[in-house]
Computed example of a mutant assay.
Amino acid sequence: MSMFSEAAWFFLAVTAALGSIVLCKHKSPGQLGSPVLWLAGLFGGAYLLFLPFFWSLVLFSLSCLLMCVYSADQELLPVDQKAVLVTGCDSGFGHALVKKLDKLGFTVFAGVLNEKGPGAEELRRNCSTRITVLQMDVTSPEQIKDAYSKVVEKVQDKGLWALVNNAGILGVTMDGELIPMTEYKKCMEVNFFGPVGVTKAFLPLLRKSKGRLVNISSMGGGVPMPKMAAYNSTKAALTMFSSILRQELSKWGVKVSVIQPGGFQTNITGISDVWTKKEKDILDQLSQEQLRDYGQDYLQVQKAFLNSMEKHSSPDFTPVLRDIQHAISAQIPAPFYYPGTMVSIWVYLASIFPTCLSDYCFKKLVAYGECTPRALRMPN
């Protein structure tokens, strides 16, 4: 076998080996994209260019050096009782995250919508004395200001290391034309203006500590899914806000990360109860023309869509919690994380595929129990 062939096989073997190592070490799609791409490109390119064996070894050595530097960046900083504020801790991601951070030794401030509710009481009962439960409706400037005062009083010179904006609501899931304006405004108030207000209030503390801002967005922030006009629009706004702050706060040493999870069972859907409680209000705000064109049966199908969302969501929060911990503790956190099955693929699909193809895929993604509006079923 010639030296040329040996070099080619060498490149392929190294690409496979190092690629596997990266995939095993960095399990989150949000963390493995860059190293996999440059490894594959480096060795794949060398293979295609058929570099002489000597220069191929030089290239391999340099790539190993870069890999070592990258791996060092992934080392987690010591906890050292760093203080973290998490919003939306009554249930879901926030509730689970507080428990995880508490076990790791962080000083945790858990913002809840109801400080006397079952979620808040469970945190007080099961967590250590390092946790402080705060009444914190993210849409209330007064409660944000009060929470800020309590955090400052407790952390004093230690400062606040990280803010995790997690609070959010799903709102009504149906065709954008049928979603009431009140729902659009409520979603925007909680999912976007809420995190913006909390961030603005606590940024002085984060700048002082050169800490971390972690915003929990959604796969929907980058993927245009039918029936999710209100929710996805707010998450897209939050993602863009975070990306701009990432650039602006870099001069202060503050790292900004966005978590874009897929479907998880966080109680954000409220299952079918959400539709039952709001059905009358939704019907009342529709015009007679809309009721005639869409039909009562079409509107009822939307309730089944909520059930299907819950059914196809994962009950295991581990990927999300792992990524949030990494964003809080890594020396150089990733700007984006995509926990969940195929989330990164859907986001990339929305970014690079032709619109006609991506639209078709996204329609199929949410086509559970799809029904055609009555006007489209009627003969011309």
Rank of each mutant, 00 (worst) to 15 (best):
G176I: 04
P118S: 12
S5C: 08
M1Q: 12
E115F: 05
S63D: 09
P261I: 00
E177Y: 06
V256Q: 03
D359E: 12
G220D: 01
G44L: 09
P226W: 09
W38E: 04
E6P: 04
A40E: 03
L62M: 10
E153G: 12
S5E: 15
G41Y: 07
I131R: 07
V69E: 06
L299N: 11
N165T: 00
S243C: 08
D73K: 14
Y348C: 05
H326Y: 14
G92N: 03
A8T: 10
Y337M: 01
V274G: 00
V58D: 10
F362K: 03
M225A: 09
P29N: 03
L249A: 06
F193K: 00
Q265V: 08
D90F: 01
R377M: 09
Q260E: 15
K200W: 14
R207D: 06
F106K: 13
E153Q: 15
V301I: 09
L76K: 10
M219Y: 02
P224Q: 07
V214C: 12
L39E: 03
S287H: 08
N215P: 10
I328N: 07
I216H: 00
L32S: 12
G45F: 05
E177Q: 11
I345Q: 14
G105A: 08
L97A: 11
K227R: 14
V164R: 02
L306I: 09
M67A: 14
A147S: 13
P35M: 03
T269R: 03
L321Y: 08
Q285K: 09
A201L: 10
A110H: 06
N126S: 15
F109C: 06
V256I: 03
Q143W: 03
V274Y: 00
A110E: 02
R125V: 10
F60H: 10
A237P: 01
D90Q: 02
P379T: 08
I244V: 15
L160K: 06
D175P: 07
V133H: 02
S257P: 06
M342K: 15
F93N: 01
G45D: 08
G94E: 00
T355W: 13
N307W: 00
A201I: 12
L59E: 07
G171V: 00
F317V: 10
A96S: 12
L245A: 05
F336K: 01
L48T: 08
S308K: 11
G33L: 13
M1R: 08
V198W: 01
K154N: 06
P180F: 05
S5V: 12
C127Q: 04
L203T: 07
I332V: 15
M174C: 11
G33H: 00
S218F: 00
I169G: 01
W38Q: 05
V69L: 14
V347D: 08
Q74A: 13
C64M: 12
S149P: 07
K150N: 13
S61I: 10
T173L: 01
W346L: 12
F54E: 14
Q143M: 09
L32H: 13
F305P: 02
S217K: 04
S358R: 12
L123C: 07
V258D: 01
Y338L: 07
V14I: 14
T355I: 09
K251Q: 13
V164E: 09
